[in-house]
């Protein structure tokens, strides 16, 4: 279960990594998945991706470890999910 919060980090994730914001909450499947994968591919080293989603993307969660990514999910009290995704190698550098 993701942590429920009334405050959401904007611009930086909880570890202080700069975040690129991607709001996919208005798109129907599979568009969010495609947009997230595309955004991850163009993410700069050391940055994280901050995804705003209507649902928890469980199929994405299953793919991320295999691609070397880690993630953290926070649910805002308005019901939206905020998912922070970063590459494992970037965390190791920290």
């Amino acid at each position: 279960m993701p942590e429920l919060s009334s405050e959401i980090n904007q611009g930086f994730d909880s570890a202080g990594r700069p975040c690129v914001l991607l709001d996919v909450s208005g798109f129907e499947p599979p568009e969010p998945f495609k947009q997230i994968v595309k955004a991850l591919a163009s993410l700069k080293a050391g940055d994280a991706l901050h995804v705003v989603h209507r649902r928890e993307p469980f199929p994405l969660y299953q793919q991320l470890p295999g691609l070397g990514y880690e993630y953290q999910t926070v649910q805002h009290i308005d019901g939206l999910y905020h998912i922070y995704i970063w590459h494992r190698s970037h965390k190791d550098k920290d």
Partner: peptide, 25 residues
């Protein structure tokens, strides 16, 4: 078409060479 996408997407994610070749519905 969604199922077709899902299977192709899973296959494309298995390799960096095909990751960007994900089709649209």
């Amino acid at each position: 078409p969604f199922l077709a996408f899902l299977h192709v997407q899973q296959l494309s994610m298995k390799s960096m060479a095909t990751m960007s070749l994900m089709p649209s519905m």
